[in-house]
């Protein structure tokens, strides 16, 4: 299979920034009803009385928005074969209805696999920014990619 991006393409400092994608109140409530039905994610009235003063998106919703923007931006054109996990996932600021979110990726580190010569690991900083350029979510992620066939 021909991929546009292989492990070799993601060298430290490589960056990507996605177009903005806005999150509606309906999307926020619908995701939260299914996956995170805390009152400040699902109930506009109760959210006003909550510590957040209004409806906010589940942090998991914001994280999945980042994942989708990543797929659309470059990941589905890559030889990615999965991820072992995430570190330092931070919900820095609330995401509110109407916020326009952008996803930004930066390669922090890249190393070939010691045991499997056909692949390598990439360590990333993944961030979500709002329309005021504030980082609303950030995390460090690792992914494995196949190396470019010789």
């Amino acid at each position: 299979m021909a991929f546009r991006y292989h492990w070799e393409d993601f060298t430290p400092g490589w960056t990507y920034e996605s177009p903005a994608r806005s999150l509606s109140k309906d999307e926020i409530v619908s995701f939260a009803r299914e996956h995170d039905p805390q009152r400040y994610h699902t109930d506009e009235q109760a959210a006003i009385a909550s510590p957040f003063g209004g409806l906010i998106a589940s942090g998991w919703h914001t994280a999945t928005v980042a994942m989708r923007l990543m797929c659309d931006g470059y990941l589905n054109a890559s030889s990615c074969i999965g991820s072992p996990g995430i570190d330092e996932l931070k919900f820095n600021r609330p995401v509110r209805p109407g916020d326009a979110l952008r996803y930004r990726a930066t390669v922090l580190e890249s190393r070939p696999s010691a045991s499997k010569p056909d692949r390598g690991a990439v360590t990333w900083r993944w961030e979500v920014l709002n329309q005021a350029d504030e980082v609303v979510l950030s995390m460090i992620g690792v992914q494995f990619f196949l190396r470019r066939p010789q």
Partner: peptide, 25 residues
Amino acid sequence: MRMICDAYLLDAASMGSSGVDEMRW
């Protein structure tokens, strides 16, 4: 997250979360 909600969080005076230190698949 949904299991967390069902197990205890919806009955708790939750003020949210600052984040996750580590997640492993």
